[in-house]
Design a protein around this nucleic acid. Structure first.
Length: 494
RNA sequence: CGGGGCGUAGCGCAGCUCGGUAGCGCGCCUGCUUUGGGAGCAGGAGGUCGUGGGUUCGAAUCCCGCCGCCCCGACCA
């Protein structure tokens, strides 16, 4: 029997888990909060990684690798950074096990002189390194990225959205001037926003975090925020302007052109496997996940329909010819010739896994020189010519990519509202979605709203992102009655 | 850390109240018939019932301890 997927309307959280399991994107593992990623999930991540990596390189970054283990003392050097991460660090204190009474125990004689922290993020080890690499203004800018795993011992975990170990990239750059570092921070935020929109087909809001939501150790944290189908917001990527905080903590200076020592200006930015969770909750439906074609591990599945007494060779020949044509055209395609599953089973399974375009070819099609092409997003089917299959598939993939984006954008627009009174705000927050409301800029008001409504300020948005709403226009904070410089984006968030 | 739930075959579960030597569905293996939307029949393999102790002639079942996982909150990407 089929994998059961709970309808979204019944229980969105359960739907999310069901979809991940049924589409074989991830599984829980024996260790709390850590996940196994089967090929369906990992290939999706690989495609995200490749897309982003190309964009990083196009903006002048190079990849490097820094160690998993960080001396505990490094984490003590930046006060806010310690404060932010100390509570969720995995720590290695020993380097050997031994057998005692038939079981393995930690050898008490093998204690490390200094405990090692499993990186929750790599600012400290990287800035320790940078302090040795950077001597002169000629060494700047230094723009590196690393693809890595990090560990944060979270209290409560959720597949992809918050796992104890996750895969991510972290960019770390060093600059001679404040302006250059700020420009870098903003540029990388734009890279993330472009990636979300052009690759993931996921519209995002760009903005800056309030002080209370800022990255530990950052001067400013910029972010992209997406809206999930259940009306909750998800922080999908962050780009931090770190000022000279880490340079000071790790004594990283350079000599400027006037032969004077100066502290280096820094940025860091990252996105993680959380993006997979964002993708699932942006596009999925009650039948399963829907992969945006640009990222889909399998873009096209070809299902041959054979018959006991039919001319199966002709069907298979047609299927193989289409596969070859599509491969030649650079399409990621599988020809599913497994005979232990019937066509209906395969149709259902590819829908669960979110393959954007499906082709079916049977005896009738062979006669007509056609194939049945079905779109995952709309369910639309049409008969297309086998001979021009590559062109038809290209068009369909493009339409699915665009269709997913349009649908997600329309959803976000329908679930974005303004509120001018606190009561209206509370009602709107209960409905879900983004709520644009004036804010007096104080942490007190922000905390009060969070306490009373569970909504947080997702960001202070950049101008011009909401049609018909000028978020820059001054007004009055309806919560405190104090003057406000503009509207900010509130939502309940993951 | 608070609240709730659950550990029995690969997966999902029943059996436990009322102790008597373990069962169902899916999956898996073999064969035959099937194949244009999650096939049918027949046969078959597979389990120290999370773990340690206790009660008992006898424990998946009763009692005590421990471990783990999931969900909801607080905290966080």
């Amino acid at each position: 029997m089929a994998e059961q997927i709970t309808p979204r309307a019944d229980d969105y959280g359960q739907w999310y888990q069901d979809v991940i399991r049924a589409a074989k994107l991830a599984e829980t593992s024996p260790v709390r909060g850590s996940m196994v990623m089967p090929p369906n999930g990992y290939e999706l991540w690989e495609n995200m990684r490749d897309g982003l990596d190309g964009m990083f390189k196009a903006t002048g970054h190079r990849n490097a690798y820094f160690p998993l283990f960080i001396p505990k003392s490094f984490l003590e050097k930046e006060a806010e950074h310690v404060e932010g991460f100390a509570k969720e660090c995995a720590v290695v204190t020993h380097y050997r096990l031994k057998e005692e009474g038939g079981e393995l125990i930690v050898d008490p004689d093998a204690e490390l002189d200094e405990p090692l922290v499993v990186r929750p993020t790599s600012e400290t080890i990287i800035w320790d390194t940078y302090s040795r690499w950077i001597q002169s203004w000629r060494d700047l800018p230094l723009k590196l990225n690393q693809w890595a795993n990090v560990v944060r011992w979270e209290m409560r975990t959720r597949l992809f959205l918050r796992t104890a170990e996750f895969l991510w990239q972290e960019g770390h750059t060093a600059h001679a001037t404040e302006q250059e570092a700020v420009d870098e921070t903003r540029q990388m935020l734009d890279v993330y926003a472009d990636f979300a929109q052009d690759w993931m087909a996921m519209p995002v809001i760009r903005g800056v975090k309030t002080a209370s939501e800022r990255f530990p150790g950052a001067v400013d944290t910029y972010c992209i925020e997406a809206l999930m189908q259940d009306g909750k917001a998800l922080q999908a990527g962050t780009s931090h302007f770190l000022g000279q905080n880490f340079a000071r903590a790790f004594d990283c200076t350079f000599q400027n052109q006037d032969n004077e020592p100066e502290y280096v200006w820094a940025t860091s930015w990252g996105v993680s496997t959380r993006l997979i969770g964002a993708l699932i909750m942006t596009h999925g439906d009650d039948a399963g996940v829907i992969m945006p074609p640009r990222l889909a591990p399998v873009q096209v599945a070809i299902v041959p329909i054979t018959r006991k007494n039919g001319d199966n060779e002709a069907v298979m020949d047609a299927a193989r010819q289409m596969r070859d044509d599509l491969v030649a055209d650079g399409v990621r395609v599988v020809l599913d010739d497994r005979d232990q599953y019937r066509p209906g089973w395969k149709f259902a399974q590819y829908e669960v896994e979110g393959v954007p375009v499906r082709l079916a070819v049977g005896p009738r099609d062979v006669e007509n020189g056609t194939a049945e092409m079905a779109r995952r997003d709309s369910g639309d089917k049409e008969a297309v010519s086998q001979r021009e299959i590559a062109a038809h598939v290209r068009r369909a993939l493009h339409e699915v990519q665009q269709g997913l984006y349009d649908r997600a954008l329309a959803f976000r627009q329908q679930h974005t509202h303004t509120a001018d009174t606190y009561d209206a705000f509370k009602a709107q927050i209960e409905e879900g979605g983004f709520v644009l409301m004036h804010w007096d800029g104080t942490a007190e008001t922000e905390a009060q709203v969070k306490e009373e409504t569970k909504a947080t300020i997702r960001c202070v948005p950049f101008p011009g992102q909401f049609s018909g709403v000028d978020t820059e226009a001054p007004g009055t904070d309806p919560v405190s009655g104090a003057p406000s410089a503009g509207r900010v984006v509130f939502a309940r968030a993951y």
